[in-house]
């Protein structure tokens, strides 16, 4: 047993390739046999990934889902920021410049609209739950933007650790819901062309959520949504501790 574990841990990235490969194979089988192709195979694979992450997190007590289990640590490398960004950029191969230009204006508007709207919604929920301190309200609002904007904002304006943790949780809920929800609502929000994909990426903003959501909806749309989504967190970190905190500060002195 020890021998097997040593080999698996030493080759963890290779183990990850095979585990993910088997997961996707099973997912496509389920998608075709059980749902007759109505649910995309990759949507099922992502859902299995999230369930596994939950189980991994609960059993190990760690923060990296399944990757905290030693023999599956390669999942952490394979699905980590570096390879994720590398693959996202690769999806832009073959994209036509004209498509990007066509949705350029709407894309930029959607980034700012997305950050501000999510912030307002998050801040409103914080107020409903009885928060009255401007720093707390701002941090929770920023968490509803993304789980990176929350802590960046919270630390910049001196929110408490508990509130910062809460903001990360709000951002995680958003990211996971975008992953699961996108393929379900795609038809109703007109998410079937490059333009709306760019607007969608700008509005949702969570890179992992958008990346997985579009993968499960229509892989052809991935580069367009990812393009705008990658600006979102930066804009959120820019507005959160500055303009948005300032405005909340005026309202809740």
């Amino acid at each position: 047993m020890e021998l097997i574990e040593t080999v698996l841990v030493r080759n963890n990235l290779i183990v990850a390739f095979s585990v993910v490969g088997v997961t996707i194979w099973i997912s496509y089988l389920l998608a075709n046999k059980l749902t007759a192709g109505r649910i995309h195979g990759s949507a099922i694979a992502i859902a299995i990934g999230l369930v596994a992450a939950y189980i991994g997190g609960v059993t190990t007590g760690g923060s990296k889902g399944v990757a905290d289990i030693a023999i599956l640590s390669g999942i952490g490398l394979m699905g980590g920021g570096m390879l994720r960004d590398f693959a996202i950029v690769a999806t832009a191969f073959g994209v036509h410049f004209s498509e990007l230009k066509k949705a350029g204006v709407a894309g930029v508007i959607s980034i700012f609209a997305g950050v501000i709207v999510s912030f307002i919604v998050g801040a409103a929920v914080a107020i409903v739950f009885g928060y009255t301190d401007a720093a707390d309200i701002t941090t929770i609002g920023a968490g509803a933007v993304t789980y990176i904007v929350g802590p960046v904002t919270g630390e910049a304006i001196g929110a408490s650790d508990a509130v910062i943790t809460l903001s990360v949780a709000a951002g995680l809920v958003k990211s996971i819901l975008v992953m699961i929800g996108t393929p379900l609502v795609a038809r109703y929000i007109g998410l079937d062309n490059p333009q709306s994909a760019m607007v969608y990426g700008g509005l949702m903003g969570t890179t992992s959520g958008v990346a997985a959501g579009l993968a499960a909806t229509d892989p052809k749309l991935v580069p367009y949504g990812a393009m705008t989504a990658t600006f979102y967190t930066g804009v959120g970190c820019l507005l959160g501790p500055s303009v948005l905190y300032f405005i909340v500060g005026i309202m809740f002195q």
Binding site: A16, V20, T23, I24, S42, A45, I46, A47, I48, G49, L50, A52, A53, G56, G57, S63, K64, G65, V66, A67, L72, I75, G76, M78, G79, G80, R84, A87, L172, S175, I176, M179, S208, A211, A212, A215
Partner: peptide, 9 residues
């Protein structure tokens, strides 16, 4: 992306 989903918190 599937691997990414599997390591979310």
């Amino acid at each position: 992306v599937v691997a990414m989903a599997a390591q979310q918190n």
